[in-house]
Amino acid sequence: MVIAAIVSLILGVVCGQWLFSPDLVSLFGPISEYTLYILMFAVGISVGANKQVFRRLRQYHVKILIIPAGIVVGTVLAGFLCYLIVDMPLRDCLAVVCGLGWYSLSGVLLTNLAGATLGTMAFFSNLLREILSFLTIPFIAKHLNHYTAIAPAAATSEDTTLPLLMRCTSEDVAVMAVVNGVVCSALVPVILNLLYRV
């Protein structure tokens, strides 16, 4: 999936730079917005179809939000650290990192909210987060604890990194990872819209 995303991006750059006319490129703006709605609809379906998520919510109540809350706080702190290091406005630094690993949505959404440059940065930043998750989850699960291994995955803990989390942790942690992924995925559009619409 990660390779497909990178190849698609490279093909898009090539088409935009050398093959497509400016008139054709301008047609992709509305298409990306409708694609965003379809992505959000798909997330809603996956949440509604997963009965374990609602069972765990009833079982753990507010305590189940500790992991996603920690992930969001850690991510915001990382965005603030980036602000201190790079020459970018704080809002832009926070927006880039607050995709929580969901590169397809954060890239499209930030392109619509703040322009193609920031959208591209968000895409690459969150794609890198997903790649690093695959590299760090086994180490974290082995040397720290199983629940901590959910943190690098953030929103991807319900889909692309879930098989790795299942292999490296336990069934109970995998269910928590799904709940975490659902919560983080729901927060991404909320956070990004708050940053640019307030």
Rank of each mutant, 00 (worst) to 15 (best):
M1G: 10
V2R: 14
I3S: 01
A5M: 02
S8Y: 15
L11K: 05
G12V: 05
G12S: 06
G12F: 11
V13F: 14
V14W: 09
C15Q: 01
W18H: 04
L19A: 15
L19V: 15
L19M: 13
P22Q: 06
V25Y: 11
P30H: 02
P30W: 04
P30Q: 05
I31A: 12
T35E: 00
I38S: 08
S46A: 12
S46D: 07
V47P: 05
V47R: 00
G48P: 13
A49C: 11
A49S: 09
N50G: 14
K51I: 07
Q52A: 01
F54N: 01
R55N: 05
R56F: 11
Q59K: 13
H61Y: 08
V62S: 06
V62K: 13
L65R: 07
I66E: 13
I67C: 13
A69F: 07
V73N: 03
T75V: 14
F80M: 09
L81N: 10
Y83A: 01
Y83F: 13
L84W: 06
L84G: 01
I85F: 11
I85R: 11
I85Y: 12
D87F: 06
M88F: 09
L90I: 11
R91Y: 06
R91P: 03
C93Y: 02
C98I: 04
W102L: 14
Y103E: 15
S104W: 08
S104V: 04
L105R: 00
S106P: 09
G107L: 07
G107S: 11
L110M: 04
L110A: 05
L110R: 14
G119E: 02
G119N: 00
T120G: 07
M121R: 06
M121G: 00
M121A: 13
A122H: 06
A122N: 04
A122P: 02
A122Y: 02
F123P: 03
E130N: 11
E130H: 06
I131F: 09
S133W: 03
S133G: 12
F134Y: 15
L135Y: 07
T136W: 09
P138G: 07
A155L: 15
A155T: 02
E158K: 10
D159K: 05
D159C: 12
L162T: 08
P163N: 06
P163M: 05
P163L: 07
L165E: 15
L165M: 14
M166W: 00
C168D: 10
C168L: 09
T169W: 03
S170P: 00
E171G: 04
E171C: 00
V173T: 13
A174W: 08
M176W: 14
A177C: 10
V179A: 12
V179C: 05
N180L: 05
V182N: 10
V183Y: 12
C184H: 01
C184G: 08
C184N: 15
S185Q: 03
L187W: 00
V188K: 13
P189N: 07
I191F: 14
L195P: 02
Y196P: 03
V198P: 09
